[in-house]
């Protein structure tokens, strides 16, 4: 039993001159929910396709469950939904899953379980082509769940789902991880990744920009302070938190200091004669981090 479920080393895929995936080295550990985050066209899907053996890397290598991607022994233990669900339009949702169950050499019982998990039991008899986008997506996830795989690779699993469906899907992923399954999911929805992922890989233009826990990415908590007069407040803030630890934002300051220092800062401000309008712990959202990372520097200037 190895703790690393997926690892890639310098994984690269070129289409002509264009590198869709460029030198990506990432690691997914057993039992975690790994968020693969990036704008559309960043290389998320191509990377996931390489992990499934659907696409051959141009260079570099990937290991999934200790073997080459696409090895039959690996594919049997991986469940996947990549770039939209692909099913026979004329078959019912249930029959589509039965076909996949036959490919896996398992019986029909897991089909009913999978349909139940994504809430499609009632519509299971209807033709796939009559499904809404969200139902198709849910069937795709159900198919990934068949055979109780060790690793689930879900490409934009909430695509096309309404808010309730998204929330159901997030709960499902959290449940799966709690049950010991490792989940790799890609998304361009930061809130989703923030809520359910343990670790995140951020990819843009084919390159992996960073790989870290959500908390690491967002950085330490800081304090947001809005007080008047501004010059007095700024002086106090710099005295308490340190000269480099104060940032002027919007109509206040951000102090790089823990939330537990709020009373100390408040007291210092009041003693200096400042009127405090607002003081609260402040965390950068993943969204802010993400845009800082993925926006080209020239665009920021």
């Amino acid at each position: 039993m190895t703790a690393t479920i997926v690892s890639t080393e310098h994984l690269t895929k070129r289409y002509g001159d264009r590198a869709a995936v460029d030198d990506v080295s990432l690691t997914v550990r057993r039992g975690e929910v790994y968020g693969f985050l990036g704008p559309n066209g960043a290389g998320k899907t191509t990377t996931l396709r390489m992990l499934l053996g659907l696409v051959r890397p141009t260079s570099g290598r990937a290991t999934v469950l200790g073997r080459h991607p696409g090895d039959p022994a690996v594919n049997g233990r991986v469940g996947a939904l990549v770039e939209g669900p692909g099913f026979y339009p004329y078959l019912s949702g249930r029959d589509n899953l039965r076909v996949m169950a036959r490919y896996q050499g398992i019986g029909d019982a897991p089909v009913e379980e999978a349909l139940a998990r994504v809430d499609l039991l009632e519509r299971g008899k209807d033709a796939f082509r009559s499904y809404s986008l969200g139902m198709k997506q849910r069937l795709g996830v159900a198919s990934a769940l068949l055979g109780d795989p060790d690793l689930l690779i879900l490409d934009e699993p909430t695509n096309g789902l309404d808010p309730a469906g998204m929330s159901d899907m997030r709960r499902l992923v959290v449940d799966l991880a709690a049950g010991g399954q490792t989940v790799v999911l890609s998304s361009h929805m930061l809130t989703e990744v923030q809520e359910i992922c343990d670790r995140v890989g951020v990819i843009s233009n084919g390159r992996l920009l960073t790989e870290a826990t959500v908390a690491e990415l967002r950085g330490a908590t800081s304090l947001f302070v809005r007080a008047e007069p501004a010059d007095v407040a700024l002086a106090v803030a710099m005295r308490v938190a340190g000269d480099d630890a104060v940032q002027v934002v919007d109509d206040g300051f951000r102090l790089e200091t823990g939330a537990k220092n709020a009373p100390v800062v408040t007291q210092a401000l009041v003693e200096a004669g400042a009127r405090v309008h607002e003081i609260r712990p402040s965390e950068r959202t993943l969204e802010e981090v993400f845009f800082e990372m993925t926006t080209p520097e020239e665009a920021l200037r």
């Binding site: 499934l52 659907l54 049997g76 469940g79 990549v82 099913f87 996949m100």
Partner: peptide, 12 residues
């Protein structure tokens, strides 16, 4: 239909 990509990840 995209069924081959689904089928090729089933195991065989």
């Amino acid at each position: 239909w995209g069924t081959w990509k689904t089928v090729f990840t089933q195991g065989p």
